[in-house]
Amino acid sequence: MKRDRLRLMLPLLPASGFLTLFLVVPLLLLFSFGFLQIERGEVTSVVTGATYRDILGDPFYRYLFGRTFLIAVSVTGLCLLFGYPVAYLYVSMRSRWRVLILTSVFAPLLTSALARTFGWMVILGNQGVLNKTLIWLGVLDQPMQFLFTLTGVMIAMTQVLLPFMVVPLITSLQSIPHALTEVAANLGATHCQTFWRVTVPQSVPGIAAGVSLVFVLAFTEFTVSVLMGGGTFAVVSVNMFEAMTTLLDWSRGAAIASLLLMSSATVVTLFNLLVRRLTPWMHTGR
């Protein structure tokens, strides 16, 4: 019996062993590193709560986490605002159009995040595509500053993360039985009513998955923030990068990373609990 069990588990051992050693152990180490005092890569004192206390007691870090949270929430909201219509369009189109939409969703995933940031720098610059278009249209009479502003970073971040919202939404929208919307229409519901009362509630799992994923990615986003935010753009990930690489304060960096991970996990867990509570119809046994 015991040997059978072992044989059963054998193919799983390498993979789970690997991830335990190279993911679980490092993460535990990361949490504990925040309690060490490290100077120039050498541990000088063991177990001090000072680093965590410093960070948690510092109003700057409270501001930093609050701000990063707000940016992540706004970007997630924007992704949902634009991503849902794209996914909805996808499922209501015929297959030739579907390929086109799918390609456009995957195109950014194929272009490296660095390259897309580069693209946005060309678009959002003072002499960039957006400003030139707006001036040509007469909306602006002189260029508006987008680069190195919160607006610019959020625009780029939304685009970079949009595919991660669209993919789970498409999956979820596709699984809605066609009969449901037909019944609604036959009962005299307008398209709008069907959309809000049938389609949206039925796609809650997709929304929850997309929102969770995009939130985590936005909350910890680094590339766009550091390249498009300018020298003093304040978000947690950039601050952590600076602590690790330029200040060489590893215990602080580790502590910030741990707090980043814990706070994003907490937010996502609370969000999913909330979704469960608010949409009981999704979870009652059918």
Binding site: S16, L19, T20, F22, P26, F33, F222, S237, F241, M244
Partner: peptide, 20 residues
Amino acid sequence: LLLSPIMLPGIVIGVAMLVF
């Protein structure tokens, strides 16, 4: 366990590995 890294922020994985 096997699927968890998808939901973990890359920057945290990076720092954790460096520390490890």
